[in-house]
Design a protein around this nucleic acid. Structure first.
Lengths: 201, 201, 201, 201
DNA sequence: TATGAATGAGAGTTCATTCAT
DNA sequence: AATGAATGAACTCTCATTCAT
C-alpha cells in the first residue's frame, strides 16, 4: 500500500493534521509515532523522512493550531475599531464550550507540559505561539491611545490577562469545585474591567 | 550495597525527598523509578516496597511540598488578626526570588500538567493539595466578616487569587519576556486590591 | 503486631490453610508469598521460616487437600462391601457441582500445571497424591475377587478411570461446547459400565 | 547483531518455531519473551514488533502445532471411506513413541493448563485448536450413516474420545507408573470399540 | 520519496528470598 | 520463633529511531 508521491509540503500538512486529531482525542503523551503514521495513512518511515523527530511534529501542530484557532478572532479583533469590543472578541473563544475550543486547550496544555523542560524546543515556537497575546497587546495599545482604556502598559496588561486566563483554564481542567466555564468567563470579564476600564461597565 | 534498615516513615521521606530533587532538576516527565531509586541510594525493589507505584510517590512529593512550603505561612496567616495583612503573608512567599520558591513552582506546574490526563492521581491528593487556597478562604471569610474586605464570596475569591497566582507562576516558569518575580508579586497585590479592597490601598 | 508463639505444626497448618483459600479464590499463579503471609496474619519472614520456599507450601496444600477431600469418600468406599456401589461412591464427588468440589479441582489442576516440569517437586508428593486411584484399585480388586466386576487388571482399570475423569475435567474446565457436569458424570458412569460390568448396568 | 530483513510471515514462523522448541524443552510457564527472542536470534523488540504480546505467540504455537501434527492424518482420515479404518488413522499418531509425539503432548497439556486461568487466550484459538475433534466428528458421522458404527451422537462421541485421549496423554506426560505409550494406544482402541463398535472387533 | 522490519534502551511492576533485628 | 525492610533479577511491554530495500 504505497502512497502516491506527494510534494513534501502537502505530506507534512497531512501528517501534522493526523497528529493533531490524535492529540486531541488521546492526549499527547498517549500519541506515538506509529499512531500518527497509521492515522495519516503512511508508513513510519515516511513520517521520519519528513520530520527530524516527533518533537518537530508536535511543534508544527501547535503552530498550526495557534494560527488556525486565532486567525479569525485576531483578524476580527484587529479590524474592530472599539478596543473594548475587540477585547471581548479576543476573550470570547477562550471559555466557549465547543468541541473546537476544548480541542484547542487540550493541545495547548499538553504542549506546555511537554515543552517546559526542553529548552531547545521552546525557542523556535515560543514567539509564533504568543499569537493571542500579541494581538491583545495591539488592541490594548489602541485602546490606550484613543482613551477607551486606562493608560496602562499594553504588553504588561496583555500578559496579565494571559496569565489569568491560563490559571482559570488550569483550574477548569482540574475541575476545581464550584468552577464552570461560564463562571470562568464571567471572572475573566470582571478582571478585564477592573484592569482596563474606568467605569464599572 | 545493602542499606541500613530504616523505619518505613523515614525511608519514605528519604525517597520522596530524592524524587523531589529530581523533579525540580529534570521535570516530572523525565523522572523514572530507576532514577529515584538511584538518587535515594536504594534499590528499585525498595522503592516499590514502600510505594504502590510511581504515582503514589509523585503524589507524596506534591503533598509534602505543599505542606512544607505553606506550613509556616498558613500558621502565621491564620494567627494574624488583620485580614489584609494575612493576605500579604499568604502571597508573600509565592513570588520570592529564591531557589526554593522556583523549585516549588516547578513541582507545582508539573503536577498540574501530569494530573490532567491521569484522573486517578487527582482524587487522593486533591484536597490535601488545596492547602493554600483553603487558608486563603478562611482569611477572606474573616476579612469579610469584620468589614476589612469587600463583601465577596470567600471561596470564589480565593479561587480567583489561586488561579491568577498559578497563571503568573506558570508564566514565570516559562520565562515570559518582561516578567520577573518582583513584577509578578506586584501584579498579585494589584489584583488583590482590585478584588477585595474598597480603597486603592 | 507480633503473633503469639505457636508450635511449628500449628503454624504450618495455619499457613497452609491460608494458602489453600487463596489458591481456590485466585488460582495458584496469582498467589504470592506476600498474599499468603497476609492471609495467614503473619509476616513474610514467618512463612519462609517455617517453609523452605513457596514450592513446599504448595505441596503441603495439595497433600492436605487430597487427604481432606477423599478422606470420607475413601473410608466409605473401603467400607462398602458392594464393589459397584463403592465405585459409585468414588466417582460421585468428582463432578458434583458444589463449591467444595470445584475448589478441589482448581487446586488439583493448578498443581499439575505448576509441577509437571519441576521433577524435584513431583517426587515427594506423587504417591501421597494418588490417593483416589489407590482406593479405586483396591475396590476393583475386591470386585474382581468376588465376581462383581469383570476380571480386569485392577491397577490398569483404575488408571483408565482416572485418565478419563481427568480428561473430562479438563474439557469441563475448558467449557467445551455441549458439555456439562451432569453429562460428564453420565459419561463417566457409562465408561465404568462398559469397562467393568458384564450386564449393561 | 542486526538480522537480515525477512517478510513478516517468515519471521513469525521462525519465532513461533523457536517458542515451540522452548516450550517443549522447558515448559510453557518457564518460557519468557527474552528466551524466545534469544532462541530465534532476534531482539526482543523484533518479537514484540511481530506479535501483540506473549499470549499471541503461545496461541500461534498451539495452532501451528495442531495443524502440523494432525494435517496429514486428518487428510487421510477424511479420504478413507471405511469409518473404522479412519478412526484408526486418527488415533494412530496420538500415542506413537517418537520425540515428536511427546513434544506434541507437552505443548498440548501446557496449553490446557495455561488457558484455564487466562480466558482471553481461549477465545481466538479455541476453534482452530479443535482440529482433531472436528475431523473425528465427521468420521463418526459418516460411520453412523453407513452403518459401520453404532448410532451414536457424533459430536458427543468425538468429545468422549478426545477427553480420554487427553487424559491418557496427561498421564503419560506425568509418567504414571505402569503406563506406556503402547498401552495407552491399546486402551484407546479398547474404548473406541466399546463405544462405537457392535462386535468386539 | 517511501517503506516497514529491526533495534535496544528503558519504562513500571512483581516477587521469592535474605538477613539484621 | 517471629519480623519486615531490603534486595535485584526477571517480567512484559512501549517506542523513537535506524537503515536496507
Amino acid at each position: 500500500m504505497t502512497q502516491r508521491r506527494l510534494p513534501p509540503t502537502q505530506r507534512r500538512e497531512q501528517i501534522v493534521g493526523a497528529a493533531r486529531s490524535l492529540i486531541v482525542k488521546q492526549g499527547l503523551p498517549a500519541v506515538s509515532l506509529r499512531d500518527i503514521a497509521a492515522a495519516a495513512g503512511v508508513s513510519m518511515g515516511t513520517v521520519t523522512y519528513h520530520f527530524s523527530g516527533i518533537d518537530e511534529i508536535l511543534g508544527e501542530v501547535v503552530v498550526a493550531e495557534s494560527e488556525r484557532f486565532y486567525a479569525d478572532v485576531v483578524a476580527v479583533a484587529d479590524a474592530e475599531p472599539d478596543a473594548r469590543a475587540a477585547l471581548g472578541v479576543l476573550i470570547d473563544p477562550m471559555f466557549a464550550k465547543t468541541p473546537d475550543v476544548e480541542a484547542h486547550w487540550r493541545i495547548w496544555s499538553d504542549y506546555w507540559a511537554a515543552v517546559v523542560r526542553r529548552p531547545g524546543m521552546t525557542q523556535p515556537y515560543a514567539e509564533r505561539v504568543r499569537y493571542w497575546e500579541a494581538c491583545c497587546t495591539r488592541v490594548i495599545e489602541r485602546g490606550v491611545r484613543d482613551g477607551t482604556l486606562r493608560p496602562v502598559e499594553p504588553a504588561a496588561a496583555a500578559l496579565k490577562l494571559s496569565a489569568y486566563a491560563d490559571g482559570l483554564g488550569a483550574q477548569l481542567g482540574q475541575e476545581a469545585p464550584g468552577l464552570t466555564a461560564a463562571l470562568a468567563r464571567a471572572w475573566m470579564d470582571e478582571f478585564t474591567a477592573l484592569l482596563l476600564f474606568d467605569d464599572p461597565a
